[in-house]
């Protein structure tokens, strides 16, 4: 997911051709950074996270991934990774977490891409 908008940002084709289409359509994805809507952000406590994947399953925007963390539990640990470009901060992940280790914390302007616990 990360980097998806940039991938298709109005890149000209090989021959720099255009064509006319009818109806409402956009190919310049200028307003997709829905992460900017966040008021609260999920703050996972990675030390208590068991990597069960409930948050990944229930996330309505599909921005949560459970990834391996070699530094945890002798290399077999899992942690939650969130794509901050798209997470709207809805809080469903915090709600469904069986270990209650995701806490919704206040979003502060200027450090959108810095994860805090």
């Amino acid at each position: 997911m990360p980097g998806q908008p940039e991938k298709h940002m109005n890149k000209p084709g090989k021959n720099n051709k255009t064509r006319t289409v009818y109806g409402p359509v956009a190919t310049v994805f200028a307003s997709v950074n829905t992460g900017s809507w966040r008021i609260l952000r999920p703050g996972p406590d990675h030390s208590r996270c068991a990597g069960c994947g409930q948050c990944e399953t229930f996330c309505p925007t599909g921005v949560i991934e459970i990834i391996d963390d070699p530094a945890k539990e002798g290399g077999r640990g899992k942690v939650v990774e969130i794509d901050w470009a798209y997470c709207k901060g809805c809080g469903i992940c915090a709600d469904v977490c069986p270990k209650k280790c995701i806490r919704m914390v206040e979003e502060k302007k200027g450090n959108e891409n810095e994860e805090r616990n």
Partner: peptide, 25 residues
């Protein structure tokens, strides 16, 4: 022949259209 859905050549179909272009469509 017009709009299509293709992950390799993405389009956002039926996006919000301003008064600048609504009548034209």
């Amino acid at each position: 022949k017009n709009l299509f859905l293709d992950p390799k050549d993405p389009m956002f179909i039926n996006n919000l259209t301003s008064p600048d272009e609504f009548s034209e469509m």
